[in-house]
Amino acid sequence: MSRYERWNSLLELLAENGRLDVEEAAQALDVSAATIRRDLDELARQQMVTRTRGGAVAHNVSYDLPLRYKTARHAGAKQRIGAAAAALIAPGEVVGLNGGTTTTEVARALAVRPELVERAEGAPGRLLTIVTNALNIANELTVRPQVKIVVTGGVARPQSYELIGPLANAVLDELTLDVTVLGVDAVDLVHGATAHHEGEASVNRLLAERARRVVVVADSSKLGRRVFARICGLDRISTLVTDTEVDEGLAAAFTEAGVQVVTA
């Protein structure tokens, strides 16, 4: 287990229980108590937890974990999903991307698509337009000569690096997109795509509404679930890209509901 995976697990345990004991955490994560103490010291330095004698308690911060702590979760599956979703995008299209670890992998896969890179080197010009409310995605793609970046305005959420609020909505109201690739916190057959945070869900909903087609990217752990804020119904989703661990019956149900399911 990597350091980031341990940090993520510790924060999740702390979010569930409110406090954490070093010995119990070491047993739960199958690492030494000394390792847990170092991890808690580092998380306390970053003001993510408050250290106590023998453990830690929840700090007065949101436990919607920052993107850097999520990157190690299902990393291989997310990279495969990102590559499969990027393969659905044609040169010249206008693509909406919201924030999240899986859409970040989509952006990275798009940036190295051979037909985009080679054509850009041979004949300079923008071969793809990306509209995003994710600061980290904009940062990674700005240096790519083949990609035109359009960033929405808005207020930045440090938990996800996404811009939300009326300024983001105002920009998106003026645009039309060919395809939106949405990372979601959950998607099920009844409630469609959902997110933990209502502000993110609002921007994501508008990204979906402004696009001719919507591709949802989500690893199999997010399927068949719902969370707090609705993004869009299944009727807005053209394609679901997930990993090969998806339950076959659930995949068939999404297909029957009119959503193309791609596994990677």
Rank of each mutant, 00 (worst) to 15 (best):
M1W: 12
R3V: 11
W7N: 08
W7C: 09
E16N: 11
E16I: 09
L20P: 02
E24K: 15
A25M: 04
A25V: 04
A26Y: 06
Q27M: 11
L29W: 04
A34N: 15
I36C: 05
R38F: 09
Q47Y: 14
M48F: 14
V49I: 08
R53T: 13
V57D: 06
S62Q: 06
Y63E: 04
Y63L: 05
L65R: 08
L67G: 12
R68V: 10
Y69R: 07
A75I: 10
R80D: 15
G82N: 01
G82C: 01
A84F: 03
A84R: 02
A84Q: 03
I89C: 07
A90K: 13
A90Y: 07
A90M: 09
P91G: 07
P91C: 05
T101H: 04
R108C: 05
R108L: 12
L110P: 02
R113D: 05
P114T: 07
L116P: 03
V117F: 02
A120K: 06
G122N: 12
A123M: 15
R126W: 01
L127F: 06
L128T: 01
T132F: 00
T132M: 01
T132N: 02
N136F: 12
L141T: 03
V143N: 11
R144F: 14
R144S: 10
P145W: 02
Q146E: 14
K148V: 08
I149F: 05
V150E: 05
T152G: 05
A156G: 14
A156R: 12
P158A: 08
I164E: 07
D173Q: 11
E174G: 13
L177D: 00
D178R: 00
D178T: 00
T180H: 03
A186G: 07
L189V: 03
T194A: 06
S202V: 15
S202F: 14
R205A: 11
A208V: 06
A211M: 00
R212D: 11
V214K: 01
V216D: 02
V217P: 01
S220N: 08
S221T: 11
R225D: 08
V227Q: 04
V227Y: 03
A229G: 06
C232W: 03
D235S: 14
D235C: 10
R236T: 09
G249D: 15
A251V: 04
A252H: 10
A252C: 13
F254A: 06
V261P: 03
V261I: 09
